[in-house]
Simulated scan of single mutants.
Amino acid sequence: MCRSWSPSLTRNGWEALGEQALISEIPGFEPKPDLTVTTAEDVADNRNPLPADRVRMTVAVVSSDRNSDYVKKRLWYAMSKIPLYLLVAPYDGICKLHSRPQGPAYRTVDTYEFGEPIKLGEPFSFALDTSAFKAYPPKLP
């Protein structure tokens, strides 16, 4: 789902890395977001895991382990001061853009329905197209 954004991101001068391990001063966890967005300069040394202070945005597509994406990763990304965390929730047909990290939380959360462009804040100067996103069908009991 979010991999379709890679051409848009690279066309706008950004690097989009799939499943890149991240580290920060926050111990005990080394998340691998579905997509990590950064600059070519910040990955020029091919550092792995990538320090969180080099990351501009992380993207997660919600899986069956909702707690990891909604709580654990969001907490770690905020405490690691990653400016933007985009949560794509195909079971709900929405995307949530978390911004303005402060301590263990993001101060701002904007919700977008699938099909609406996601307006990214600084340092990005474009919107992400979600028109091709499809919500998952409801789970059967």
Rank of each mutant, 00 (worst) to 15 (best):
Y85D: 12
S80D: 11
G103D: 07
G121K: 02
A89S: 11
T58G: 04
W5Y: 06
A127P: 09
R56P: 01
L22E: 09
K72R: 14
A40F: 05
A105N: 08
L140S: 10
L17A: 01
R100G: 08
E15S: 01
S125D: 15
P90L: 10
K73L: 08
V61N: 14
P31R: 07
L97M: 02
D129Q: 11
P101F: 04
S64C: 06
N67T: 14
G28T: 12
L97F: 00
S68E: 12
V43A: 01
P27I: 08
E113T: 15
G115R: 08
P123M: 02
L97Q: 03
Y70A: 04
P117Q: 11
P90S: 13
K32S: 05
N46R: 14
V62H: 10
E30T: 11
V88E: 05
P138G: 06
L140K: 11
Y112H: 11
R56F: 01
W76N: 13
S80Y: 07
W5T: 08
P117F: 10
S6H: 06
D69P: 09
P117S: 09
E30I: 00
R100S: 10
L87A: 10
A60T: 11
G103S: 07
N67A: 15
E15D: 02
T111W: 03
K73G: 05
A40C: 05
T10D: 09
V37L: 00
L86Y: 06
A16D: 09
F114V: 09
R66A: 15
R56Q: 02
D69S: 14
E30A: 08
V109S: 02
M79Y: 04
Y112E: 10
Y85V: 05
I26A: 08
N12D: 12
N48P: 00
L86I: 11
P138M: 06
H98M: 00
D129M: 07
V37P: 00
L9F: 09
A78K: 05
E41I: 02
A60S: 14
